[in-house]
Design a protein around this nucleic acid. Structure first.
Lengths: 92, 92
DNA sequence: CTTGACATTAGCCTACAGGCTAATTAGTCA
DNA sequence: TGACTAATTAGCCTGTAGGCTAATGTCAAG
């Protein structure tokens, strides 16, 4: 799943906003929203596939962490649509 | 349809890129892609609902025009997710 | 190795996106 | 008016996103 598609779902954008403050476990994220746990796992998997987050085990928990560079890249692509810049993909 | 969802489809992003250079008719847009005319109308309608383009009659033709401010706004929301700014709707 | 908590996978269901063809509306011109 | 062109609407079909429950895997503790 590409970043644009991943960002299309409001819940996934809210998850990203949560992760801004720091990494969180799947349980903490799922608990913050009114969805079943497997549903949240599905959203997190899509965010991971899009490269917007990274996952890392921490004992029994799994920490999800925001990957800011992909978001910045995606925002840059949007601005390219407006400004007509040709530069693509050259990041970090 | 919100802007993020509208941007999720690659063909719609390509249409926006085309419109960067100036307004085009539905026919010109449909002709540039390998899809049936009604299919393109559907995409254009979604872009219009998202506020990303505006439509205006010009004789027998209908001109579609890019609405840059919504794109800029959307890009700003993405950057907000990264930077942690609370301000929304900051314009040029 | 069994138990208990955390998280994902599997399976199923409903709704809607996205594509097509055919029919309809809107506007121009003879 | 009638005909022709441009674009949309209507209707149908297929695939997949997004939700749930139930089952399974993974790790720490005893």
């Amino acid at each position: 799943m590409d970043a644009f598609t991943a960002l299309a779902h409001p819940l996934r954008r809210e998850v990203l906003a949560m992760l801004r403050k720091g990494p969180l476990t799947s349980g903490e994220i799922a608990d913050a929203f009114d969805v079943a746990w497997p549903t949240m796992t599905g959203h997190l998997t899509k965010l991971k596939e899009a490269g917007l987050v990274t996952a890392e085990r921490s004992g029994t928990n799994i920490l999800y962490r925001l990957n800011a560079s992909i978001l910045e890249d995606t925002a840059a692509m949007l601005l390219d649509l407006v400004a007509g810049k040709k530069s693509k993909g050259s990041k970090s």
